[in-house]
């Protein structure tokens, strides 16, 4: 993937913005009637001057809290939405200007929607895709055979889509959007609502797609395990603005400095004055009580040594259990979402 990043970008997003104008809706019955005549619009900046590039063969995680503008960006990348300002270039094309040509090169999955024909077996949807993308028969059959094997579709192929479980359906969605060998694939929450086993299967498949087929992938998700398993690079956006673009390792290095001491006390022990007494151990300590009676102390190892804290706790309280933890990605991202980065 390092050699990929030096190649000319396959996706280039330049100063992209999208503003929606929506009617300010007033609540209640009177409000509803007023809405009929209202011209009171409010502008929402869904995407606000975002720029990034993706090199061929990269697998990039595109994350952010709900409503951050992830899906809106993807809709602009596919050519469906027109930017209010800025530009998108995908493999040399401006998708808005050459939507049809662009659509043949891309595959899209919106995890919350289905592209499969609901009342009939997935095979019929695949057949439709064959015609839709004018896929040569040999290519179609080879791809289908491989995908069916990788995703263990076998039996599912004959059942109407409406009878499939979410995980089974999502596997079929992947097939439907990949049969035409797209160069670039946008996966918008492909693991949403799936159980751990189903998620893992999807992840393995995505990884295969990226590594064996060299497909460029932009992945949005709320499951950070997806990101840790799949992506080296992450783009984080919030409120329409780009707040981080870099490697996962860098995030951990930069923002994951804080580590945690987690401990619980022996039955009946009092935790009175714990917070105050810990604050005297060193600067920048944060104490949090957990619902199960555990206590979490987060600290910056450059300011206080873990041993200083643990020694203080063990010497002053009847400890039942104690451990020191690295900050995990979820904690880091939670902090980033909550505070914004340096904003």
């Amino acid at each position: 993937m390092t050699e990929a990043s030096s190649a000319a970008p396959i996706v280039r997003v330049t100063d992209l913005s999208k503003t929606f104008r929506t009617l300010k809706r007033k609540p209640g019955l009177v409000g509803a009637i007023r809405n009929l005549f209202s011209t009171d619009y409010e502008e929402i900046k869904a995407v606000d001057h975002i720029s990034f590039e993706i090199a061929p063969g990269e697998l990039v995680g595109y994350i952010g809290p709900n409503g951050a503008g992830k899906s809106t960006t993807i809709k602009m990348l596919t050519g469906i939405l027109h930017p209010t300002a800025g530009q998108v270039v995908v493999d040399g094309l401006v998708p808005q200007r050459e939507r049809v040509r662009n659509s043949k090169k891309i595959g899209v999955i919106f995890g919350q929607r289905t592209q499969l024909l609901w009342d009939i077996p997935p095979t019929d949807s695949f057949e439709l895709m064959r015609k839709m993308y004018a896929i040569p028969t040999a290519q179609y059959q080879a791809n289908l055979k491989q995908f069916v094997e990788l995703l263990a579709l076998g039996e599912l192929m004959k059942r109407p889509v409406r009878q499939l479980s979410l995980g089974q359906r999502m596997r079929c969605e992947l097939v439907a959007s990949l049969l035409h060998d797209p160069k670039i694939v946008y996966l918008d929450e492909p693991t949403i609502g799936l159980d751990v086993v189903a998620k893992e299967r999807i992840r393995e498949f995505i990884l295969h797609l990226n590594q064996a087929r060299r497909t460029t992938i932009l992945l949005t998700t709320h499951d950070l395990t997806d990101i840790e398993r799949l992506c080296r690079r992450v783009i984080i956006i919030d409120k329409g603005q780009l707040i981080y673009d870099g490697t996962l390792a860098e995030i951990k290095r930069r923002y994951g400095r804080r580590r945690r001491v987690v401990f619980s006390l022996a039955d009946g022990a009092s935790i009175d004055g714990l917070t105050t007494s810990l604050e005297q151990v060193g600067p920048g300590l944060q104490t949090q009580m957990r619902g199960d009676g555990g206590v979490v102390v987060s600290f910056d190892p450059q300011q206080v040594a873990a041993t200083t804290i643990t020694r203080h706790i063990v010497n002053n309280y009847p400890v039942a259990d104690l451990s020191v933890e690295e900050a995990n990605l979820e904690a880091i991202i939670r902090e980033i979402y909550q505070q914004g980065m340096g904003r």
Binding site: L117, D124, E127, L128, R130, K131, M132
Partner: peptide, 22 residues
């Protein structure tokens, strides 16, 4: 040809769907 084939594919897909609810 491709476009005709594509549209026929869409027609056939609808036919299959309507047959699901005879």
């Amino acid at each position: 040809y491709e476009e005709i084939d594509r549209q026929l594919g869409i027609v056939v897909a609808t036919v299959k769907q309507t047959l699901a609810y005879r």
